[in-house]
């Protein structure tokens, strides 16, 4: 399966930001919220310079980030807020372990790519990602290869979430 979308490079001083933690993504003061739709407006609400992300993001967009994205708390909200915004995928150099699970279980595509810094991609560029091969293309040309999703990860993604996946096994 392939998805297309517009890239947001989450950068600071021209470099993809590392260690974006769950409090930066979705601050603990909004944890009482249990409705997913309501979480959209708080995505990156505690990440300096990115507080207006929910207004700028469009359905289908793709996020690029550095190492250890989503480290910190186990809050599903930090995944749900991006689903509510319609984000298509997050590509990072690496993810916090719990964050990665939470994203997979919710059907939000997350891909790891060590060489993400090397990509000749700017914020606003349209790219295409193939989840099975990990290929990332711009203007039809492969510019990067991310680690493809593993089998179970991909199956949960296709099913939509862990609950629906489990019904089918």
């Amino acid at each position: 399966m392939k998805v297309k979308g517009r890239v947001w490079k989450i950068e600071k001083d021209g470099k993809l930001m590392d260690d974006i933690d769950t409090d930066m993504i979705y601050h603990n003061k909004y944890l009482h919220i249990t409705e997913q739709e309501e979480m959209a407006k708080y995505a990156f609400s505690n990440l300096e310079g990115w507080q207006d992300f929910p207004e700028k993001a469009r359905k289908g967009d793709i996020i690029f980030a550095g190492e250890n994205f989503g480290c910190g708390s186990s809050r599903q909200h930090a995944v749900d807020c991006f689903i509510a915004l319609g984000i298509n995928a997050i590509v990072a150099k690496s993810f916090g372990a719990i964050y990665k699970r939470n994203a997979i279980n919710s059907g939000l595509a997350v891909l790891e790519c060590n060489a993400l810094d090397m990509a000749e991609v700017e914020t606003g560029d349209e790219i295409e990602i193939d989840f099975e091969t990990g290929e990332i293309k711009k203007n039809g040309i492969c510019i990067l290869k991310a680690k493809p999703m593993n089998k179970i990860q991909y199956a949960i993604y296709l099913a939509g979430n862990l609950f629906r996946y489990a019904e089918g096994i």
Binding site: S73, Q76, I98, R101, N102, N105, S106, L162, F163
Partner: peptide, 10 residues
Amino acid sequence: QGMGDIDIAF
């Protein structure tokens, strides 16, 4: 292991 609410519900 800490997990999100989908995992825990499951």
